[in-house]
């Protein structure tokens, strides 16, 4: 499939957006502002329509209009402090209104479907150069603002006291979101771009790691989503946007399943001294590098009816079915692992 120029272009753009989308998505998701991605993707719809009408390059026109709407969201956010989501609805309505009006009036003489659903066939080398330029500029700005953005999202008040220019960063970030969306619409499509911004990060968050590690996992998941999505869409002859969105959800479901799937273990606690009843047990095994699993067990029990509840915590490591006594008073037996 790599003998075709359009596939080469599509994969090169895909690699760039698989880095850029989770990078921006990380900050948007943690800012609790992931719907901004959806709103600005609709704003880019109006930008594409305007670009096609005025015979501009649609990615550039989308970038310009999306940036304007992104900055407008930030300005309005200061006036509607307690109703931030309302601004997103306002901007979304305005941009969709503009796009539908332009398209339905017959002023736009082009196929808009490729921008709505994403397309591999229509990706040109010129698109790649524009995407490459915007991506490099965006990556450079994010790398410069990385620590300030992280600080601001974690503790905005603290960041303000430390001298970080919150206003400037918010406006710059709005433009960065606009750039990310503009470069992604060719492949992913306007309708599902927000999934690529939020879902890889939502997946990476399930791993419960630090900021940088979560971000790197987000990039990895995004890469898996996009590359598998494009490859499958090529073979089944479908629009890549839809397949990428499905792949993102599948990867999230896969991680969720394995993250929440506790190691099957049957633990019997027995207080040998006075046969206390165990009221609660929590067991979760994590596999170590040597294949052994480490168990952290917490039990809350009442030694006798007239005594208070007691809590006991202990850990043990094992690789096979065994029985052992812990804390001299409690006997633990564990079934063999099923997987």
């Amino acid at each position: 499939m790599f003998q075709y120029n359009f596939m080469q272009n599509a994969f090169m753009i895909a690699i760039l957006i698989s880095i850029l989308c989770p990078l921006i998505g990380m900050f948007l998701v943690l800012k609790r502002y992931s719907m901004m991605g959806d709103t600005l993707s609709h704003a880019s719809f109006a930008g594409v329509a305007a670009g096609l009408m005025f015979h501009m390059h649609p990615i550039l026109s989308a970038f310009c209009l999306t940036s304007i709407f992104g900055v407008l969201i930030e300005i309005l956010r200061r006036h509607f402090k307690n109703y931030a989501e309302l601004i997103l609805v306002v901007i979304l309505s305005l941009s969709v209104g503009i796009a539908i009006t332009l398209i339905s009036s017959g002023l736009v003489h082009a196929n808009i479907d490729s921008f709505l659903f994403g397309s591999i066939l229509t990706v040109t080398r010129e698109d790649f150069y524009i995407v490459f330029l915007l991506s490099i500029i965006s990556l450079f700005i994010v790398s410069r603002l990385y620590h300030s953005l992280m600080f601001m999202i974690f503790d905005e008040e603290g960041a303000k006291i430390s001298g970080i220019n919150i206003k400037f960063i918010n406006y710059t970030f709005a433009v960065l979101v606009a750039a990310t969306i503009s470069v992604s619409i060719r492949i992913v499509g306007i309708l599902v771009i927000s999934s690529l911004i939020a879902l890889p990060i939502a997946t990476a968050l399930q791993l419960r790691k630090g900021f940088k590690t979560t971000l790197l996992f987000g990039v990895l998941f995004s890469f898996i989503d996009i590359i598998s999505g494009i490859t499958i869409s090529y073979w089944i002859n479908a629009a890549p946007g839809g397949v990428i969105a499905i792949m993102s959800v599948l990867v999230l479901a896969f991680v969720l399943f394995f993250q929440n799937h506790h190691f099957p273990v049957n633990i019997h606690l027995l207080n040998l001294k006075n046969m206390a009843k165990i009221n609660c047990m929590i067991a979760n095994g994590k596999r170590n590098s040597d294949g052994r699993r480490k168990f952290q067990i917490q039990s809350i029990f009442k030694p006798a009816w007239h005594q208070k509840y007691q809590t006991t915590k202990f850990t043990f490591e094992t690789s096979q079915s065994e029985q052992r006594t812990i804390n001299s008073g409690y006997s633990i037996s564990k079934s063999a692992p099923r997987r």
Binding site: L30, S148, F151, S162, L205, F211, K212, T213
Partner: peptide, 18 residues
């Protein structure tokens, strides 16, 4: 409490900002 940030990262971003 779900915010994915380590203590080292909290202190690093403060160090860089200041």
């Amino acid at each position: 409490t779900q915010f994915p940030i380590t203590i080292e990262e909290i202190l690093t971003c403060y160090q860089k900002a200041r």
